[in-house]
Amino acid sequence: MEIGSSRYTLEIIKDKLIKKGAEAEIWQGRWFDLQAIFKVRVPKLWRHPILDSKIRSIRTIKEAKIMYYSLEENVRVPYLYDVDLENSTIIMEYVDGTILKEIFPKKHKEFSFEIGRILSKLHSINIVHGDVTLSNFIMLNDGKICTIDFGLSEFSNRVEDKGIDIHLFLRNIESSFSSLSKESFEYFMKGYSIFMKNHGEILNKLKEIRRRGRYIAERRRVKIF
């Protein structure tokens, strides 16, 4: 199959805008027989046109690559259908299920463990997610957890970047379900230690990150350590 959608436009229908983020639009539609999501990085008028198309194509490739590597390592993410570089669009599986944010308190220990396990796997192959919030995990009908939105993801082996990922998870739990945060973190770390042999090092970095000036307010509100 050739990259670029122009030759089979008839089979591809992008018909409903479901989300407009800062960088990309998420459209729902059909790709041949399948329900599909179209993630479109839209041109920014405030950017120089050459820089704009360069940024959009680099980031589209990177995101698709990261999703592909994750799938290869058995991390459940939406299946890639196509990458349309001309329109900086990733066409992927439409994932049907429940956003974890809506059901988190029901099974917060299991979910936290599973998120820990997923991040552990990703970090062990040097991928950081960059936007770890409960809205970016979906429970599928078969009970598996699917990770979505790799828009801020990076290839990185830096302890700092991995620590930030965990910090993002913690901060998200604290702001949404603060009474569950201590237990959630405990189970998260159990999952996180599965593939990450140096999780102690990351944990120390996390402590350092949370001591930094800009996070003072959070530190005062909840004591995790």
Binding site: A22, E23, K44, W46, R47, H48, L51, I55
Partner: peptide
């Protein structure tokens, strides 16, 4: 562009 991107976010 760097600054504008973070502002947009």
């Amino acid at each position: 562009s760097m600054l504008c991107e973070t502002i947009e976010r």
